[in-house]
Design a protein around this nucleic acid. Sequence first.
DNA 1: TTTATTGCGTAACGGTATAACGTGTGCAAT
DNA 2: ATTGCACACGTTATACCGTTACGCAATAAA
Lengths: 136, 136
Amino acid sequence: MTSHAQTGVDLTKNQTLVMGALSSADGPLSAYTILDQLRDDGFRAPLQVYRALDKLVEFGLVHRLESLNAFVACRHTECGDRGQTIFLICETCGKAIEVTDKAIARRLKTVATGALFALQTATVELRGTCDACRAA
Amino acid sequence: MTSHAQTGVDLTKNQTLVMGALSSADGPLSAYTILDQLRDDGFRAPLQVYRALDKLVEFGLVHRLESLNAFVACRHTECGDRGQTIFLICETCGKAIEVTDKAIARRLKTVATGALFALQTATVELRGTCDACRAA
DNA sequence: TTTATTGCGTAACGGTATAACGTGTGCAAT
DNA sequence: ATTGCACACGTTATACCGTTACGCAATAAA
Ligand SMILES: [Zn+2]
Ligand SMILES: [Zn+2]
Ligand SMILES: [Zn+2]
Ligand SMILES: [Zn+2]
């Protein structure tokens, strides 16, 4: 169903529908936008979306963009390592590019340790303008 | 009034009240928490808080924590350089430690450039456990 | 005085997220 | 068979976050 089929998780009907909406979108979607898109499929309440999203995030199939209050399908094949994902969010077109960088992950760990802080997860979200929008 | 008095900005009455609430708090506050604290000072509506917060963020006296939907007084003396601030947010006590790191700022810039992305601002918020809470 | 700017206050609204309740189904262990 | 449990689901209600729209008052040019 997705590029993450390897994970071998079995998705429920609702999870499949939400995953489909995110996969076919070309950018991050809010929970309520997903709800609207799935009304014809029987979705009626926000909680149906949030429950599916919680699981999809847990499975690593979906990322939550904190600074956007939105969700995006993972496009990265090797994002298994937690907390290493960086998002480049274009202010113009709204799309989010997903990248990883070991040097940043390492340095964040070092900074946290230096502050006697037990790092669990990292949110790194950059704002700016993507190449396509700058050219236009 | 704050450690940023050097900036020499004149705060309005509402801005002063909101700044005071954030300065005397020992952690991030949501806009609605600030509103509740300032009801006795005449605050009645969220917009009064948000208008003040917008200006305080613009002046660099306050930071917004995207992953928390909350605001915190800047405790860092040299955070003038935009986008270099990193927050370490303790999941246990809710406090936020503010640090800067030139290596990360530089590397983020490099990563963005490599993706042909024109970087404007960076949000870096780490979750984990602070030293005090881990010891307890 | 006229005009523009800025801050302020009120009300109404829309977007985000969770709480609390009950239902049904599949799958052990008894 | 039945009991207990885990899990997904559906519904309603509510709390929390943030903005839009409108009008008023004080201040600062012009
Ligand atoms: Zn990913
Ligand atoms: Zn773009
Ligand atoms: Zn600061
Ligand atoms: Zn702590």
